[in-house]
Amino acid sequence: MKINCIIVDDEIHARKILEKYITDIPHVKLIKSCKNALEAMEILRTQTIDAMFLDINMPKLTGLNFLESLKNPPIVVITTAYREYAVDAYELDVIDYLHKPIPFPRFIKAISKIEEKLQIRNNHPLVTQEKTEYTAQNFIFIKADKKTIKLNFEDIKYIEGLGDYIKIHTKSKIIISKLTIKKMVDLLPENRFPRVHKSFIISLDLIDSIEGNQIQIQEQKIPIGQIYRQSFIDLINTFLKK
């Protein structure tokens, strides 16, 4: 899932920090770094923006006043040196409130919240062209244990996220790779490998049963996360209707 975003902040140092953070995350694209709300308004009018990192104290038009003026705002993360505006900001339905100076791990958490919000908004992650190509091939290549390993889709039972690593449970072995679970979402065909929890992707082909908020795949029970539940149910229902 690609995230198109803008920065709106009158402080050049603050913009530079956020610009660096964004360039370090491959699936997040910075469309524009704006020094005021009026500049951002023009970008929002002409381009599709998923998320906006918005400062509060700016000349001419404050961040909160700017946000109040938008009929259909993107997902908003407030970035500010002032804590006292948090209540007002959340009343405007911002998804996160980052206090400057912003540590990179805290910024990553905000990105995760944006991704979850976009998934809910779209019902499920978008299927990219890359996924379509892999679907036709029925395999991908990944790096693991200092080797390049061919991973056949039919062998995957489920994938477990472990921070910056993943544990791939196959029919014959477990593979640990330095990939994030979000990267695997991008690599695998979503119609065969839905993400059902922040820490789990499962093989639709190998589900034995579904009961309540749990999926049974052989001996393993896998939880269904709340924000992924509806998209997973919708996917299952497409088969029930056939």
Results as ranks from 00 to 15, higher is better:
3 I>Y: 04
230 Q>T: 12
119 Q>Y: 05
186 D>V: 09
185 V>S: 01
236 I>W: 02
5 C>Y: 03
53 F>A: 09
53 F>Y: 15
172 S>M: 07
62 T>F: 05
183 K>R: 11
180 T>G: 08
168 I>A: 06
112 S>M: 13
119 Q>C: 13
119 Q>R: 12
26 P>G: 07
129 Q>H: 13
227 I>H: 07
57 N>Q: 14
151 L>C: 15
163 G>T: 00
115 E>Y: 03
148 T>Y: 11
105 P>H: 06
226 Q>F: 12
19 E>Q: 14
145 D>P: 05
123 N>R: 12
160 E>L: 12
136 A>Q: 13
50 D>N: 11
209 S>M: 12
111 I>R: 03
162 L>H: 15
74 P>M: 05
210 I>K: 07
14 A>V: 00
14 A>K: 01
4 N>H: 15
93 D>G: 10
178 K>R: 14
152 N>V: 06
63 G>A: 04
22 I>Q: 03
220 Q>L: 11
178 K>V: 15
223 P>R: 06
85 Y>I: 11
127 V>W: 05
127 V>A: 10
204 L>M: 11
212 G>E: 09
210 I>L: 04
20 K>E: 10
99 H>M: 15
101 P>R: 05
144 A>H: 04
184 M>T: 06
90 Y>L: 08
127 V>E: 11
53 F>V: 11
75 I>T: 08
84 E>A: 10
84 E>Q: 13
130 E>W: 08
58 M>D: 03
70 L>N: 06
208 D>S: 07
194 P>W: 02
33 S>D: 01
66 F>D: 00
135 T>M: 12
135 T>N: 10
33 S>H: 05
71 K>T: 12
8 V>P: 00
148 T>F: 10
30 L>M: 03
147 K>Y: 10
205 D>F: 01
188 L>K: 01
40 A>P: 02
10 D>P: 00
44 L>S: 02
52 M>C: 14
65 N>T: 13
114 I>R: 00
46 T>Y: 14
114 I>L: 02
236 I>N: 01
181 I>N: 03
61 L>Q: 06
212 G>P: 06
158 Y>V: 04
240 L>I: 14
49 I>C: 06
194 P>Y: 01
54 L>P: 00
62 T>W: 04
80 T>G: 08
27 H>I: 09
15 R>W: 01
113 K>S: 08
